[in-house]
Design a protein around this nucleic acid. Sequence first.
DNA 1: GGCGACGTGGAGGATTCCCTCCGACTCGTC
DNA 2: GACGAGTCGGAGGGAATCCTCCACGTCGCC
Lengths: 233, 233
Amino acid sequence: MTSSEPTPQDGAQPRRRDARQNRERLIVEARALIAQNGVDASLEEIARRADVGVATLYRNFPTRDDLVRALYDIALAELATVRDEIAAAPTAWAGIELYMERVAEWLVADPALPHILKRMEVIDPGSGKGTEFQAVIAGLVARAKKDGALRADVDAVDLAVLVTMVGSLGTHGGGHTGQWRRQLAIVLDGLRLPATDRPRLPGRPLAAREFQAAVHGLTRRAKRAASGAGSGR
Amino acid sequence: MTSSEPTPQDGAQPRRRDARQNRERLIVEARALIAQNGVDASLEEIARRADVGVATLYRNFPTRDDLVRALYDIALAELATVRDEIAAAPTAWAGIELYMERVAEWLVADPALPHILKRMEVIDPGSGKGTEFQAVIAGLVARAKKDGALRADVDAVDLAVLVTMVGSLGTHGGGHTGQWRRQLAIVLDGLRLPATDRPRLPGRPLAAREFQAAVHGLTRRAKRAASGAGSGR
DNA sequence: GGCGACGTGGAGGATTCCCTCCGACTCGTC
DNA sequence: GACGAGTCGGAGGGAATCCTCCACGTCGCC
């Protein structure tokens, strides 16, 4: 994480209790609103929902990007636990399965994440999980190939792309149904080498109507139009 | 009675030539800007880029949703050719491959499409390609299963979800590299039943650096910050 | 060429958002 | 309690956006 900087007040919380609470509420609301409206979500509305003045928001996060960065750091911390889990996997292939599943789960769980990640790549390119996390996965990939469990013509980056892809299903609102697990299982089958004995797909296929409903990726505009008439803003 | 021309069908263009040109330019710019900024892209800026007054935009598309609908209809028309192509496929499995590839290609080719589709589901739920197109695919799926080419535990909706998923790779800017074809190949391998002889993956894996670059999904805000440099603090 | 209808552009009021500044309030401590 | 530093909230200027209205071009036909 980036918190290794020698910032004077970092580890401890030298701030007042109410200040910390406000910051916490801001983060919660920011995440919720960014999930709906993207990184361009109104800062004033975030503050409003957090029952906080605008100035408090700006004091905590001088720049919109500072807010995004904070959300990113929090999410990344949650991801850290996954790394340990992977390390404990019995086989390399199991590690890969775990990697794909946990990261996809992580992406799907927080609909704000895609927006935040996309933005982070612009703010601060060439840092983050790509650096150290990918190295672990690369090793896993090499071992899995040697074990004959993973097809030889893919690499760690392919896995990253795939998991991003599966994780994008959360953006469409289908996350809560766990539907993405089906698609992940198919992807894993496409990666597995023996390919003979396939596990059953988890869950059940979506009905067509459900699929359409799941694609509802409600934006702010969307919700407004749903309640009010169709006259835009 | 007003002299309202019957306008028997909307097939003809009873409008003035310059009016049609303006509309055309508006559509082009709208698509470009929506690709960058989402459906909430500024209408004034669309008009500005199209070298057209705002009023002209509003005359052509009274509501933002009318604009979205127009873009949707255009995109859908392009998709129609795919259906014929699929019908001409030699085997059911080939048809499925074609379906997945063409639709993914369609999604990736126009980065505005995900935004438009997402919005369309809100504007006008339960219509569009889902209705008639899905029926064709469902038949294809049934035949492919009987042929023993497609795994039995998936259905047409699963395919739709998968192709949406693969198509989402275009949003991340990776479309131009054709990278998505690799991921699609893996997905297809996960769907194929014999699963013994696998085709080689098309293309080459992305370098880690390229992957990061590909995730750059530039938003308006992004471009601003990129040019404005570190004025943040 | 000339005319009329169709189409155009941009001003402008209302609203929202960004970000800063400063008086008022509250927490933590004595 | 009471004090002071830290924190808060909202006003407010500037800018962007939405959408409408109306005087003014321009196309197409005679």
